[in-house]
């Protein structure tokens, strides 16, 4: 049988996804049009809603870079979530200790360092012992989750608070932003965009970036081309962890101002989708991260319509699957 044209296959897949979403909405008894509108436009409803979207957009962007970095070296860093948590906790503790602008800078650096340290076992095992990074990073996530919960419930908990959280940073000890209209745009966003752009440049315009991409695309050919594949693998996972830790540190000193149980709403896992949805161009991380931020914000609004917020996750997951199918088809097409 002759396969259907590519466009038609993608169309069918898209339609199937739309139907799944529709069924999900109908079974929850909501008006699909109303829900979709709320999902997509809630971000623009009020300055607060927009600020909340930006608060998610920033870590999605930075963690998107972290995942993308590893992905380009042919590695799945599932551990971004744990690296983000550990970075966020370290950043908070350091910023609380030091205070002021110095605390902000050292807090972000501490996050970076701890994120890289949290990736170290996985990077070493993968590069020099051949153990799969997916397994080790999942395990490291669990340790990070339990360890941060434990610390924030005891040793670093604010004794006056009624639930597991640290003290809150005073405003002068946090990263500020500039006021644009009603919305405060934190400098962390500028930094996030800067990280995406710098990473894109590094990946596409430097020899080190070229070698990373060769390693990810065909490591045997890389070894024949004089690339130290092990070292490239090791440093890619370390860099990925460092960026994820920086994301955590920044989240603490720029947006949250403290570390608490539930500091991450699963940013690290969503970031896997952000990176895949970004496509082959690192700059694609920016719109992809914004889409994630926007839909997760909309997810809060649909709760008022008695639809579970999981609908946003459902849509995002379907988008990622659809996109992967599309990319896969394109690759196969060029080979056939």
């Amino acid at each position: 049988m002759k396969p259907l044209p590519l466009a038609m296959r993608i169309g069918i897949l898209g339609l199937t996804c739309a139907i799944i979403v529709l069924i999900a909405l109908m079974t929850s008894g909501a008006n699909p049009a109303e829900v979709m509108t709320a999902l997509l436009t809630d971000t623009f409803r009020s300055p607060t809603a927009f600020a909340d979207t930006l608060k998610r957009f920033c870590p999605y962007m930075i963690l998107g870079v972290a995942v993308f970095w590893a992905l380009r070296a042919g590695l799945f860093n599932i551990g971004v979530e744990g690296q983000f948590l550990m970075g966020g906790m370290a950043g908070t503790v350091v910023a609380l200790q030091i205070g002021g602008l110095g605390g902000v800078i050292l807090g972000a650096l501490a996050g970076t360092l701890v994120g890289a340290l949290w990736a170290l076992p996985a990077a070493w095992i993968r590069a020099y012992r051949g153990g799969h990074e997916v397994i080790s990073t999942i395990m490291l996530n669990m340790i990070a989750f339990q360890l941060s919960n434990h610390l924030v419930s005891g040793p670093i908990m604010d004794p006056e608070a009624g639930f597991p959280t640290t003290k809150t940073l005073p405003p002068e000890s946090m990263l500020s932003g500039i006021q644009i209209g009603d919305v405060n745009v934190n400098w962390a966003l500028g930094l996030g965009i800067g990280i995406v752009v710098a990473f894109g440049w590094w990946l596409r315009r430097t020899v080190a970036g070229y070698e990373l991409s060769v390693t990810g695309a065909n490591s045997t050919a890389g070894a024949f081309a004089g690339i130290d594949v092990r070292r490239t693998t090791f440093s890619a996972l370390m860099a990925s962890g460092a960026v994820a830790g920086l994301g955590g540190g920044l989240q603490a000193v720029a947006f949250e101002g403290r570390f608490f149980m539930g500091f991450s709403t699963g940013y690290g896992f969503d970031a896997l989708g952000v990176a895949i949805l970004a496509g082959s161009n690192p700059l694609g991380i920016i719109p992809s991260a914004f889409a994630y931020g926007l839909l997760q914000q909309g997810a809060l609004a649909v709760q008022t319509l008695h639809v579970p917020p999981g609908i946003a996750t459902l849509i995002l997951s379907l988008l990622v699957i659809l996109f992967s199918a599309f990319r896969y088809a394109k690759v196969r097409h060029s080979n056939g």
Binding site: Y210, E211, V214, N218, A221, F224, A225, G226
Partner: peptide
């Protein structure tokens, strides 16, 4: 061992000489 199939001839021309 010698090429990255999905990449252009130009990007493969650099391979080994980078």
């Amino acid at each position: 061992e010698a090429i990255v199939e999905d990449w252009s001839l130009a990007d493969n021309a650099v391979l080994g000489f980078q």
